[in-house]
């Protein structure tokens, strides 16, 4: 009987201290939790909700239109152009960034001298303001006084109004995008190369794979596979989110030749004020990003389970 009473008392004290720990947890994490709710979760839900309405920014009324925004999006010539252009841009930026990043990483790692210097030089664009550098690129690509046309004219290559021609505008944007992301891919590959144990190269030497290409084929490239998949996803995510260069250099032009997903989102939501429509674009963008992120999670998981 006495023991029973004691255990009742004890249980109460346990609940109280458990409560104290929970209280501490929520006091510490509370501000962040509330803010994540207010600034991420609720806005995310709001985007989903707005995408099903015909709301115009600033309008007093709106009505539910279901999936109408999505159906008209896919019927919209401009949006289809945006989707297509984004896909083309991604397909140009991602392979070139990966191939260049990997080649440069192998080249830098193949020697001992000036490693840090080369790494720094190639990484520099990744951390500078793309807005400011886009303005510089505009000067470089200027049809008459730009360096590009001056040099091309001098050595007999064709010159063009690069940013005003439908044929060249996307490739040029892709070059700028590659220029910016290259450094990221490079340092990620360099980190991957550093992580390959010397033992593997020694084993390959003993097994007779001692040529440069053999070592590459037998040891380096297979070991880099997980890193490569990872770089692929990171660079793809960044390419899908291209905005600054479109906004500053082309505003989607000429025609709709360089309209991309985020620029379309920005224009529909904030310039044309067709907010419901813009929200639908945001939803599609989100779906793409989440799909890529899920792929990334699987890559990371398989990587950690491997190591």
């Amino acid at each position: 009987m006495k023991a029973q009473q004691a255990s009742v008392v004890d249980r109460r004290s346990r609940v109280e201290t458990g409560f104290a720990e929970t209280l501490a947890g929520y006091t510490l994490a509370g501000p962040a939790l509330v803010l994540i709710f207010a600034l991420f979760i609720l806005p995310g839900a709001a985007v989903l909700a707005i995408a099903t309405t015909d709301w115009h920014l600033g309008a007093k009324t709106l009505s539910f239109v279901g999936a109408a925004n999505f159906t008209s999006l896919f019927a919209d010539r401009v949006f289809r152009a945006a989707l297509f252009n984004t896909a083309v841009y991604v397909l140009m930026v991602v392979p070139s960034t990966l191939v260049l990043g990997l080649s440069l990483a192998l080249l830098i790692e193949s020697g001992k001298s000036l490693r840090a210097f080369y790494r720094a030089v190639h990484f520099l664009p990744f951390m500078t303001s793309l807005a400011a550098m886009a303005i510089v690129w505009e000067a470089l690509l200027h049809p008459t006084i730009g360096l590009v046309n001056q040099v091309f004219g001098l050595i007999g290559l064709p010159t063009a109004n690069w940013l005003r021609s439908e044929a060249t505008v996307l490739p040029i944007l892709a070059i700028i995008g590659t220029w910016q992301s290259l450094g990221l891919a490079l340092v990620l590959f360099l980190a991957g190369l550093k992580a390959i144990p010397q033992d593997l190269y020694d084993a390959a030497d003993i097994d007779g794979a001692d040529g440069v290409l053999d070592r590459l084929r037998v040891v380096t490239l297979p070991s880099l596979a997980p890193v490569s998949l990872f770089v692929l996803i990171v660079v793809t995510l960044r390419a899908f989110a291209a905005f600054d260069i479109v906004q500053i250099l082309t505003r989607g032009g000429p025609g709709d030749a360089s309209v991309m997903l985020l620029y379309a989102l920005y224009r529909e939501s904030f310039e044309y004020l067709t907010t419901g429509y813009g929200a639908a674009i945001a939803v599609i963008f989100l779906v793409i990003v989440i799909a890529l992120a899920m792929l990334q999670t699987r890559v990371v998981n398989s990587r950690t389970s491997r190591s």
């Binding site: 609720l42 806005p43 995310g44 709001a46 985007v47 985020l262 907010t275 939803v283």
Partner: peptide, 12 residues
Amino acid sequence: LIPHQVLALPLF
């Protein structure tokens, strides 16, 4: 997971 650009509208 959510890119900031997606949330721009409600945040605006």
